[in-house]
């Protein structure tokens, strides 16, 4: 790891000014659970760290207004334990409590978690650098394609990259139509989460619609009755503390026995948090049973493209979604 400077900013303005003044190699750090890890691996090589974990008021959680608001600096553990979130939006709480370990949830923030980098083993092969990776070294090639690709994506893949988007929280937020607040040197803006994550295409090194110097300052989630009938199902190689092989965020607004509007997103199987619109429209207006749930699961994976060792994710993903739909459907309003 190369030598670097470190300062702690107290306000967003102080942080963005420090970022501009530091020039090349400047990098914001919050919880640091991704960035510091990747610095140790030689994948990230910042010169200047600007700590934004202590920005004034950045950890605000406000569930009392028209939307749920989560300050970007709120800890994953604190949002996971919030009583309103747990009761009225279990999909959000579960996506956090099933992520990482309590130690990391006490460090990582809900804003920083949006920017977590992929766990693709070839991407993380930084210091040794024996394998090419288009995300780490643009244009160098992709060793995962045709390589050890058991954990790679089957949805949203390109010929340049098949790396899985690693998060759980961003998947739940995608299902719930969250909006991301950003603040940078030129002011504030808010964008739908659907526009925040980029497909790899030919440029897998561009992952997020965030400009240099911008900071994620908050996340808002529109309130909806579908929150109560929601769940996050995560299937892993072990029961806890592992990344998803397949996961599904499901929330259902119901009219009696019939689905009025389904919210569905998938994790562990795609190159970005994956909104499953085909599955949603298949459920809308229908009563839920095992058959329609599995049909929705299969619809979500209709365009899936497997590599050498990850074809199992297509069946696993479809059944994970089907199970999550059944679980959400059984919940009382």
């Amino acid at each position: 790891m190369r030598s670097l400077s470190y300062i702690r900013a107290k306000t967003v303005r102080e942080a963005t000014e420090a970022f501009a003044a530091a020039g090349e190699g400047a990098c914001y750090i919050s919880g640091g659970t991704t960035l510091y890890d990747l610095m140790k691996l030689g994948v990230e090589r910042p010169h200047h760290l600007i700590d934004i974990a202590s920005l004034e008021g950045a950890d605000r959680i406000d569930t009392g207004g028209d939307v749920l608001f989560f300050g970007a600096g709120a800890l994953m553990a604190d949002v996971a334990e919030d009583e309103v979130v747990r009761r009225d939006y279990p999909v959000l709480a579960e996506s956090l409590s099933k992520a990482a370990s309590q130690q990391l949830r006490n460090m990582a923030t809900v804003g920083g978690n949006l920017l977590q980098r992929t766990r693709c083993p070839y991407f993380r092969n930084g210091t040794i650098g024996a394998y090419p990776c288009n995300k780490r070294e643009p244009g160098s090639g992709c060793a995962a394609i045709g390589g050890l690709d058991r954990t790679q994506a089957v949805l949203g893949v390109s010929d340049a990259c098949t790396a899985v988007s690693p998060g759980d929280w961003p998947v739940a937020l995608t299902a719930m139509d969250a909006r991301i607040q950003l603040q940078g040197p030129t002011g504030e803006r808010t964008i739908p989460i659907a526009e925040f994550y980029l497909l790899p295409g030919k440029t897998p090194h561009f992952e997020f619609a965030i400009m240099p110097g911008e900071i994620v300052t908050g996340i808002s989630v529109p309130k909806t009755e579908a929150g109560r009938r929601s769940t996050y199902l995560k299937v892993r190689d072990r029961e806890s503390y592992a990344f998803a092989l397949a996961s599904a965020a499901v929330a259902l607004a119901m009219d009696g026995d019939h689905v009025r509007r389904a919210h569905i997103a998938l994790g562990g199987v795609a190159t970005r948090p994956w909104r499953a619109r085909e599955a949603e429209s298949l459920l809308n207006g229908r009563a839920i049973d095992a058959e329609i749930a599995l049909a929705a699961g299969r619809a979500a994976f209709a365009d899936a493209r497997a590599g050498k060792h990850n074809a199992f994710k297509i069946e696993l993903g479809a059944r994970t979604l089907a199970d999550a739909i059944m679980t959400a459907g059984r919940k009382m309003q």
Binding site: G32, A77, S101, L104
Partner: peptide
Amino acid sequence: DHGQCGACTVHIDGRRVASCLTLAAKID
């Protein structure tokens, strides 16, 4: 040394964290 095993667990302000993934500069 990558936050995956928990052997480095300590408490900061009473909360458990992985000390290997905590920048020492942050404990000021």
